[in-house]
Design a protein around this nucleic acid. Structure first.
Length: 338
DNA sequence: AGTCTCAGTCCCAATGTCGC
DNA sequence: GCGACATTGGGACTGAGACT
């Protein structure tokens, strides 16, 4: 036993892999039919290198066998058929499959120990465990991301921005986007997302807001629990999001709901730190700066504080104090929503 | 042919500015 | 005082080229 069997690793992100698999014509998906890289490339209309990368990924998962001529394995066959129509079922197949693949278990074990892994850490783990000679840090990340995205897909964790987390990010520090938009804009976004969600390009066009800007605003809506982000570039309303823009509730009910979600969100941490009286843009700005642990310019503080104050005023959590500058917390409203 | 690397593009978060 | 838009920098993503 001088040379171990060649070990393959997923190269493509699972999202990309699935997109390509959906494109494969049914007649090619079979345990008996052989296909070449060239043939597959023509069949799905992408370059041969892309297909080569797909093939390496599928091999790494045990979904296809062969050299130069390939054919689907039984499980690969099943997965490819399911991914076209029944994604949840396909996930189960993939999950079961990776339970029997060594390197997935190695990474999974490390993930369970540490709670989260960056894609570079995963890459390094493979290099040391499997004697890979990857030199470029980007290559480490590419393979790391391939594995991390699969973990996210099958439900072993939550993959986002180069980090796979065992636990959901929600509620953790750092996962609280700065208040970035007014309540009014929040509702415009929610209405634009109704009823079945939208991709960021469409949304940007419909709302006339730059994509960059919009993605930040959506992050806020997400933190408040109104919007979900099932995959890259696509956003949809959560049940809460649908409820709060329902035409069947009054504006008063809308406010009440808004308070409940605001107080139930991570932004509660900010509300807790607010002074009881003399709430002004300036004082909120300072609270924000300390909660986020940042050093901001006065202007930046003011920008965010204004938005947050807008939420507080919209919801009725604060009331103006007569004859004085600033607002005070409406304790009764707050406590009735604890 | 198959594996790895490169570089352009896209996405995102943070910060800054404009106009009413 | 307020809401909307712009700029910047960094990192992930991706298709295709380079290398073995």
């Amino acid at each position: 036993m001088n040379k171990a069997k060649r070990e393959y690793f997923p190269y493509l992100r699972v999202g990309k892999m699935n997109v390509l698999l959906k494109e494969i014509p049914l007649q090619l998906v079979s345990e008996v039919n052989e296909f070449s890289a060239q043939g597959l490339a023509e069949a799905i209309g992408v370059s041969v290198t892309t297909v080569s990368n797909l093939i390496a990924t599928l091999k790494s998962l045990g979904f296809i066998d062969g050299e130069r001529k390939f054919r689907f394995t039984a499980v690969g066959d099943r997965y490819t058929l399911l991914i076209k129509t029944e994604e949840e079922e396909a996930k189960k197949v993939l999950q079961h499959q990776i339970e029997n693949i060594g390197y997935f278990q190695v990474v999974k074990q490390r993930l369970d120990e540490k709670g989260k892994l960056t894609i570079s850490e995963i890459g390094n783990l493979l290099v040391t465990q499997y004697n890979k000679r990857w030199k470029n840090p980007l290559t480490l990340k590419a393979y790391g991301a391939g594995i991390a995205s699969i973990f996210g897909f099958v439900g072993y964790g939550y993959y986002r921005r180069g980090v796979i987390n065992v636990k959901k990010l929600e509620g953790e520090e750092g996962a609280m986007p700065v208040p970035y938009l007014s309540a009014d804009k929040i509702f415009r976004i929610l209405n634009a997302l109704a009823p079945s969600g939208a991709d960021i390009h469409t949304l940007s066009r419909d709302l006339g807001t730059q994509k960059r800007r919009l993605s930040q605003e959506l992050a806020c809506c997400q933190a408040l629990g109104f919007v979900g982000h099932p995959h890259r570039g696509f956003y949809e309303l959560t049940e809460s999001g649908k409820a709060i823009i329902s035409p069947y509730i009054s504006d008063d009910e809308r406010r009440t709901k808004f308070i409940r979600y605001l107080v139930g969100s991570r932004y509660k941490r900010i509300i807790d730190k607010l002074p009881e009286a003399k709430i002004t843009v300036k004082s909120i700005g300072n609270v924000l700066e300390s909660v986020y642990g940042k050093k901001w310019s006065e202007l930046t503080k003011k920008t965010y504080a204004k938005k947050f104050l807008n939420w507080l005023r919209f919801s009725g959590l604060v009331a103006r104090v007569k004859g004085e500058k600033g607002y005070k917390l409406n304790e009764s409203v707050l406590s009735s929503n604890k």
